[in-house]
Nucleic acid binder design. Structure first.
Lengths: 320, 320
DNA sequence: ATATCCAGCTAATCCGAATTAGCATACTAG
DNA sequence: CTAGTATGCTAATTCGGATTAGCTGGATAT
């Protein structure tokens, strides 16, 4: 049915070894006669030979496949990051399995299982749900792993993240320049690293502007709770005239709950942001760069475990 | 480094064959003594044995991987479909590579190449860019292939699509029930199958309501051209009081160009549609079902080529 | 004439598991 | 006492290609 090297060899009265040498482009190294090499190539084309990735993978101990776990593929941040990562992976001859975990522990663990069974060679994680036992096992097994967007305490692997502190400062400075003094902050749970950093960034940036970071609310990482928390910020005086929302769900909460004259700046860019009921300024991640760097780090980890350094990338403010 | 069956066998003074029989759960069939089987299982656990998917794949001639080509992963329709497909694939022990083609011929061809090299066992396509030569080759090679959302003329493989005609009828009937008589239609290029069917559906549904489907515009499948075409519908009298947009880009075009009092119904659901400046009623695909059925058909094609029938699924109207 | 060298190729093994065919040993039946 | 049978396991091969080690036959050198 399918054509193997052996078939080409038999067809030409040569050995499989010779065919392999030629088709791997190592004819010079093994002193294959130029005319023989040509015959092999011609026969390969004529018979429609396609090398079996399956056989090569076994021999190389490589699946030539990476995986990235993203919490929510419908979120354009993750979709964009995944697409960029896929491009980069393919540039290096790897496939990328983009896995939507739906923020579920079960799915994150399933991906680790794929790594163990060598269905994938390495993993890009943005997990926040793994338990200490999972992390301990990861540390023990030392498989190629890179974290993106969210770091995990106590897991010493390379990571690629956006500079949260710098991002929040961009937002605060922008709002202050527009005359705002009462700036509110809508943050997420502190067990997620970026939320911790963004809150710290808010405090720092406000202090730098001689303002008090007093108007704050915190919500679980979902639109409903975020809207609820945002509403609280407007119940009592002093009310903020502007809100900084710590991620996409906080932003959506703020959009739902804040009065129309309140200005909103949200971390994470939003799909169709220019079609929203009100203008929304966003702190955008360097999405492509995050994806590309994550793959580069991961491939470096595969080639030379423990060799690579973490990367922090600068966000940019999209004023609308 | 990694533990193989051979290591377990040596450790217990058994043969690799016996270990294989036990770990594949075929001890009864090969009359392995219960205590021997138990020793094997214990040793496997103790040594941390993980079967090599690479070796199994070669032996089975299966990559246990499928791929789906989607034009735009940032589009929540495709993201949702891909996630559902991934779920279904994993239920059957397969990985799913979700490939964002960016509507590029180059990328679609690259996926076909993966199929040929057996890096993936089958392909779910929604391609519209392949050339006749590509299609001819696909027909000749007869590899497992399923089309989703977009069918391709002259390529006789199973497909899973949403019933476009029924969808447009839902929209027309909804608008008529709300009192609209001047209903406009914003469509896409006719070389894409769903656009053809939706236009036909519009004509049919309008005829059924005794209305003339005269107010129409056509644009290339992108937001800019769509907005431009939508604007044309409002230049001359009679102007439509409502617009049906044939897909997500047409909808965005209509949102940008139509006066605020014009009611819009769009084919394809939109992320955060409830946050838009104006209420948007949509004709939503049964996204999960599309993804699930596509994988089921594909696995059926892999198991029994030529065995499966195409599927047409019903859309539903989300009134906002 | 014999050793040396080189061009040009091949045999054999490996990767890790799945699978087919079959070999001892002990026991039962006639 | 011998044939037949069941039990419990193993040897050998296969999947398709990569790789290492080495073989052969003619030309050149001494």
């Amino acid at each position: 049915m399918t054509v193997r090297m052996k078939d080409i060899a038999r067809n030409l009265g040569l050995s499989q070894t010779t065919v392999s040498h030629v088709l791997r482009g190592r004819e010079a190294e093994f002193r294959i006669n130029a005319s023989t090499a040509q015959r092999v190539r011609t026969a390969a084309r004529r018979l429609g030979y396609q090398p079996s990735a399956l056989a090569r993978n076994l021999k190389h101990h490589r699946a030539y496949t990476l995986a990235i776990a993203v919490g929510d593929l419908s979120n354009p941040f993750w979709a964009g990051l995944a697409v960029a990562a896929q491009h980069e992976a393919e540039r290096h001859g790897y496939m990328l399995v983009v896995n939507h975990t739906g923020e579920s522990l079960e799915n994150e663990r399933q991906l680790l299982e794929m790594l163990r069974q060598r269905r994938v060679d390495g993993l890009i994680l943005s997990a926040a749900h793994l338990k200490p036992a999972d992390l301990a096992r990861l540390r023990r097994e030392k498989r190629p792993l890179v974290l993106v967007d969210r770091t995990i305490d106590g897991l010493d692997v390379p990571s690629v993240v956006t500079d949260s502190v710098a991002g929040i400062r961009l937002a605060v400075d922008h709002l202050v320049a527009k005359g705002h003094r009462l700036i509110g902050y809508l943050g997420g749970p502190n067990y997620i690293a970026p939320f911790r950093e963004r809150l710290a960034g808010f405090r720092q940036a406000m202090a730098a502007q001689q303002l008090r970071p007093a108007l704050r609310a915190t919500a679980h990482d979902a639109p409903g709770p975020a809207a609820h928390a945002a509403a609280r910020l407007f119940r009592d005086a002093p009310r903020p005239t502007a809100i900084i929302a710590a991620n996409i769900w906080m932003t959506i909460g703020a959009l739902r709950a804040a009065p129309d004259d309140v200005e909103i700046v949200g971390f994470d860019d939003i799909y169709l942001a220019d079609l929203l009921r009100r203008p929304l300024t966003t702190i955008a991640h360097p999405v492509e760069e995050l994806g590309r760097q994550a793959v580069k780090l991961l491939l470096a980890e595969i080639a030379h475990p423990g060799s690579s350094e973490s990367v922090v990338l600068a966000p940019r403010l999209i004023v609308r």
